[in-house]
Simulated assay, not measured.
Amino acid sequence: MKTLRIAAALLTRADGKTLLVRKRGTEAFMQPGGKIDAGESAVDALVRELNEELGLVIAPEQARFLGEFSAVAANEPGFEVNCQLYGVHVEGVQDEDAVNPAAEIEEAIWVDGASIDPLHLAPLTRDSILPLYRRLQNGA
């Protein structure tokens, strides 16, 4: 299986909700982020992707490394994703209009632990990142 190296954000706001995105022409929701370009650090890729896809401008030091995770890619058959995950907390973002889906992002939604279950989720999001999100929300 081929591997895609990505950087993603467990993006949270003051009310504890986290942002999930869905790419155009797909069904699975996942964390915002994207592929790491050759010669680019994971955190630099994350900063670039958040700006390109959502209009969010963050400084690299706002991103706190949470770990490395792997799973079958949701939208690329025959690929696995290797994800460098960063926690990013954004202040002053309280409504749905605070992020502006662009590039290949069709939909962006803020969710909490109770509103996640009915969604179609990418394997990495479902099996690794959201369990981590729930543990962090519970203070673990």
Rank of each mutant, 00 (worst) to 15 (best):
P101Q: 06
E80D: 13
G67A: 03
H89D: 10
V99N: 00
E107N: 11
R22G: 01
Q62D: 09
I36H: 05
K17G: 08
P131Q: 02
Q94W: 06
L66N: 08
F79Q: 08
L85T: 01
G78R: 02
V111M: 07
L66F: 03
G39M: 07
A108E: 07
F65H: 14
E61V: 15
A38E: 15
A45Y: 01
F79T: 07
V111Q: 11
L132A: 10
N82G: 13
A98N: 05
K35Q: 15
D117A: 11
A74F: 02
L119G: 03
Q31K: 06
N82K: 15
I36A: 06
Q31E: 12
P123N: 01
I109H: 01
F65D: 04
P77R: 01
D37N: 13
N51Y: 14
H120M: 13
D37Y: 10
N138P: 07
L85A: 07
A63N: 10
T26N: 05
T3R: 14
I6V: 14
K2L: 08
L121F: 03
V21F: 03
D95F: 04
R134S: 13
D95N: 11
C83D: 14
Q31A: 14
V90C: 07
D15P: 03
R24F: 00
V111A: 06
A9M: 06
I58R: 04
I58F: 01
A42S: 14
G113S: 00
P131M: 02
S41R: 13
E76L: 09
A114C: 11
W110Y: 00
T12V: 12
L10G: 02
Y86R: 07
R13L: 00
A108Y: 04
V90S: 08
E53D: 07
D44H: 12
E52V: 12
W110P: 04
E68W: 11
A7K: 07
R24I: 03
R126D: 11
E61D: 15
A9R: 04
V21S: 01
E96V: 12
G33T: 01
V99F: 02
C83R: 06
T3I: 13
V81F: 07
V47P: 09
G113A: 07
E76I: 10
G78W: 02
F29N: 04
A108R: 06
E104Q: 15
E53C: 04
R24T: 13
L10Y: 00
V93K: 10
